[in-house]
């Protein structure tokens, strides 16, 4: 009985994992970037790269989204909004920091009005460097994040992320 339940559980887990990997709905938030990275994100979503073939859909409501694409060095004013949007998203949720500013503050590092990167405010799951990163790099980063979900690889759990807000960099170029 116990074993049978485990098999069912495994199948269900596999199914949900498959669905999650194949249907990431993204939300785009600008926490004070120069707009360069945002334009690259929009370019990524255009027909030229056609992310719908990977199941990516741009959602406008945090409640619908699975992945938060976040750019910018997080200004002190954007900080509260960023936290609020992050908390409005439903589990399981992932954060991708896009651009040098989002990683470390970039050219704005050390300014009196910025937090020096997203990971200072909310836990980040993948980092995509570049100023700004090319659309290919953004796609690569999101795909790497999604691949890390499959059980063969390291599974990012909620507890994990709460333990160490800054996981190791998923993308390094």
């Amino acid at each position: 009985m116990d074993e049978k339940k485990n098999v069912v559980q495994e199948v269900m887990d596999g199914l949900t994992n498959w669905a999650r990997v194949n249907s990431p709905w993204v939300l785009h938030f600008n926490s004070g970037s120069c707009n360069g990275c945002d334009i690259e994100i929009l370019a990524t979503l255009t027909p030229r790269y056609d992310l719908e073939r990977l199941g990516v859909r741009l959602e406008a409501s945090p409640r619908h989204a699975d992945v938060l694409l976040c750019t910018g060095a997080v200004t002190r004013q954007a900080r509260e909004r960023l936290i609020r949007i992050y908390e409005q998203m439903h589990e399981p949720k992932f954060v991708v920091a896009i651009g040098s500013c989002a990683l470390s503050g970039g050219v704005f590092r050390g300014c009196y009005n910025v937090m020096n990167g997203i990971e200072e405010v909310i836990p980040v799951d993948a980092y995509i460097p570049g100023c700004p990163p090319r659309p290919e790099a953004i796609i690569d980063g999101v795909v790497k994040l999604l691949n890390s979900l499959s059980p063969a690889n390291h599974q990012i759990t909620v507890a994990d992320r709460n333990d160490k807000p800054s996981t190791e960099k998923a993308v390094e170029e």
């Binding site: 199914l15 949900t16 498959w18 669905a19 999650r20 194949n22 249907s23 027909p47 056609d50 719908e52 073939r53 199941g55 409640r63 699975d66 439903h90 589990e91 399981p92």
Partner: peptide, 23 residues
């Protein structure tokens, strides 16, 4: 002029939504 979603896309969307946290 796009490639478009794979044939199981609506199914994957539905299963993912069903497995998501509800607030």
């Amino acid at each position: 002029n796009r490639v478009g979603p794979r044939w199981f896309q609506p199914l994957a969307d539905t299963i993912k939504l069903l497995a998501k946290e509800e607030v």
